[in-house]
């Protein structure tokens, strides 16, 4: 069974136990997170996870937290029982990430348009300290409707933050409809380039392509944007590209399809 499908299964089972999660958002971004953490791009040290000069990943689209938790669980930063407590009483892993709840959770996010401005400060501080690390920020395409994204974009360029890598999970959907329908935007490249970012585009479900681009260094002293073209809900046929699945759990009928498509056995479904 391929690793991405296995991770999606974990995401679903964890959400099923909790009774709620932003499943479709977690499914669209999981491939990129997998490559970052499991293909030696974002470096980490399990023995010393808070080392000052570490690479950092900031989930600006905090509602996709479950994808991050599942990856952190896979690499050993989050224990199984912690993950299984997701969104339940006594857990420190909520629907939106909380800074320090586990190693690898670098910022409390949830309200959109916060993670990138926060990351600008992190990237600046790391530069001031002379570190040679990278600050990765995952934002949504819909999130770019928040004004502070653009405040942060201007500052990142002005302060020459070439240690900042913004990954846009461009799944083209937001809660109510498509981003294009709601705000008339079908392409991001020109906008970010005009502001001074180095922009690349990838198929966010092609692991080789993600790896090749993420391993490449910046060409000049500019912050980078990687537009990751994805499908919201990828991996579960009836969720793919359908806005209503932004925040919803399947009914009994739909559950049968999920089980089949993600390879879930009846006995694995625990509430």
């Amino acid at each position: 069974m391929d690793e991405i499908k296995e991770l999606k299964k974990r995401i679903f089972l964890t959400a099923y136990k909790a009774g709620a999660a932003h499943l479709a958002s977690a499914f669209s971004v999981i491939d990129v997170l997998y490559v970052l953490y499991c293909k030696s791009i974002l470096t980490y040290d399990l023995e010393n996870p808070w080392m000052e000069s570490r690479d950092r990943l900031i989930m600006s689209k905090g509602h996709a937290s479950l994808a991050l938790y599942v990856i952190l669980n896979k690499i050993g930063m989050i224990r199984d029982e912690e993950l299984e407590s997701f969104c339940q009483p006594g857990s420190h892993l909520g629907g939106e990430p909380k800074m320090g709840a586990a190693p690898g959770i670098e910022a409390s996010t949830g309200s959109l348009g916060h993670g990138l401005p926060f990351a600008v400060g992190v990237a600046l501080a790391c530069k001031m300290n002379g570190y040679n690390n990278k600050i990765y920020v995952v934002i949504g395409d819909g999130e770019c409707q928040e004004g502070t994204i653009w405040e942060a974009v201007m500052a990142a360029v002005r302060f020459k933050l070439d240690n900042l890598v913004v990954i846009m999970d461009d799944n083209r959907l937001q809660a109510m409809d498509s981003v294009e329908e709601i705000m008339g935007i079908s392409s991001w490249r020109d906008r970010w380039e005009a502001f001074g970012f180095e922009v690349e585009e990838i198929n966010g479900h092609d692991l080789n392509e993600i790896e090749t681009v993420l391993k490449r260094n910046n060409k000049c002293r500019k912050p980078r944007l990687i537009i990751s073209h994805t499908i919201k809900g990828k991996g579960v046929s009836f969720m793919e590209g359908i806005p209503i699945w932004h925040y919803r759990m399947p009914n009994e009928e739909e559950l049968e399809i999920v089980k089949k498509e993600l390879g879930i056995l009846e006995k694995e479904l625990i509430r």
Binding site: E52, M99, E106, A107, H114, P117, F118, A119, V120, G121, V122, A123, L124, A125, C126, N129, G147, T148, E151, A152, M154, A155, R158
Partner: peptide, 18 residues
């Protein structure tokens, strides 16, 4: 930070986290 107080406050938080 220019005329961008929200960004300044969030970036200050990011700096303090380091």
């Amino acid at each position: 930070f220019g005329i961008a107080e929200e960004n300044m406050v969030a970036a200050a938080a990011g700096m303090a986290s380091c």
